[in-house]
Lab assay of single mutants.
Amino acid sequence: MLYRITVRNADGEKLEIVVEMSEDEVRALAEELRKAGYEVRVEPIPEGEEP
């Protein structure tokens, strides 16, 4: 499935990426980023919607 991941650092800089991963993989990635001090938001992209 496609997911949009938005990551912000302490300075407020934002990075937005689209990935194709399983829900478990995305959850693990988000958890690791949060542990590293980043603010993370994950949104699933519905099938048929443009990323």
Rank of each mutant, 00 (worst) to 15 (best):
E39H: 15
E23W: 05
V42G: 00
R41N: 08
R8G: 06
V42P: 00
E23P: 10
S22N: 07
L29Y: 15
P44T: 12
M1I: 06
E50Y: 12
Y3N: 01
G48W: 10
G48L: 13
V40G: 01
E47L: 10
R8Q: 10
G37T: 01
M21S: 04
P46W: 11
R4C: 02
P51K: 03
M21L: 12
G12P: 01
I17Q: 04
M21H: 02
E16F: 14
V26I: 07
V42A: 03
D24N: 08
V18P: 01
D24V: 11
S22A: 10
L29P: 00
E23Y: 11
R4N: 02
R27S: 07
M21N: 02
T6L: 11
R34M: 06
G48F: 11
I45V: 10
E25L: 09
N9D: 03
V18Q: 06
E20T: 12
L15I: 08
A10P: 10
D11V: 12
G37D: 01
R4P: 00
L15M: 08
V26A: 11
R27F: 14
K35L: 08
E13L: 13
R4E: 01
R27Y: 12
K14S: 11
L15G: 06
S22W: 10
D24E: 12
Y3M: 03
E13R: 14
R27C: 10
I45G: 03
E23N: 08
K35T: 05
L33F: 14
K35H: 07
N9S: 10
I17T: 07
I5G: 00
A30Q: 05
E50H: 12
D24T: 11
E32G: 10
V26N: 00
E13C: 12
G37Y: 12
G37P: 01
E16K: 05
R41A: 09
R8P: 01
E20I: 09
V19R: 10
E13F: 15
K14Q: 12
E23D: 07
I45Q: 06
E16R: 09
M21V: 06
E39Q: 13
M21R: 03
V26E: 00
R4L: 04
R8C: 05
I45C: 06
Y38N: 04
V18E: 06
K14N: 06
Y38G: 02
E16P: 03
G12M: 05
V18A: 03
V18G: 01
E31S: 13
M21W: 05
V19H: 02
E20M: 13
V40P: 02
V42S: 01
M1Y: 15
Y38F: 14
E49P: 13
I17G: 02
E13G: 13
A28K: 07
P51V: 07
A10L: 13
E25A: 14
I17L: 09
E32Y: 15
E50Q: 11
A28G: 08
R27Q: 07
L33P: 00
Y38A: 04
R4I: 03
E31P: 00
R41Y: 06
K14L: 13
V7I: 10
L29S: 01
D11Y: 12
E49Q: 09
E23T: 09
P51E: 08
E23K: 09
R41T: 08
M21P: 00
V7R: 02
E16Q: 09
A10E: 04
Y38W: 07
E23M: 11
E50G: 11
A30R: 04
M1S: 05
E31H: 13
D11C: 13
D24Q: 09
Y38Q: 02
G48V: 15
V18F: 10
V42T: 04
E39D: 10
I17D: 01
G37K: 02
V19G: 04
V19C: 04
E49R: 05
A30S: 10
G12C: 11
M21C: 03
L29D: 00
I5L: 12
K35R: 14
L2R: 15
P46A: 13
Y38T: 01
E25Q: 10
P46L: 14
Y38C: 02
A36W: 15
D11F: 10
I5E: 00
E49Y: 12
R41C: 07
V40T: 02
R8Y: 15
E16C: 04
V18H: 06
R27P: 01
R41P: 00
E49H: 11
D11N: 11
A36F: 13
L2P: 03
N9C: 03
I5V: 11
R8I: 07
K35A: 10
E43W: 08
Y3V: 02
M21G: 05
D11S: 15
A28R: 10
A28Y: 13
V19A: 06
E47N: 15
E47A: 09
T6K: 07
I17W: 14
E16I: 09
S22D: 05
L33E: 00
L29E: 01
P46I: 13
K35S: 06
Y38R: 02
E16T: 08
I17E: 03
E20D: 06
E25D: 06
R34A: 05
E20K: 13
T6A: 03
K14F: 12
V19E: 01
I5Q: 00
M1C: 04
V26R: 01
I5Y: 00
E20F: 15
V26G: 01
A36R: 15
K35F: 10
S22C: 04
E16L: 12
R27T: 09
L33N: 00
E31D: 06
P46H: 11
K35M: 08
L2G: 05
E47Y: 13
E32C: 15
K35W: 06
L29G: 01
P44W: 10
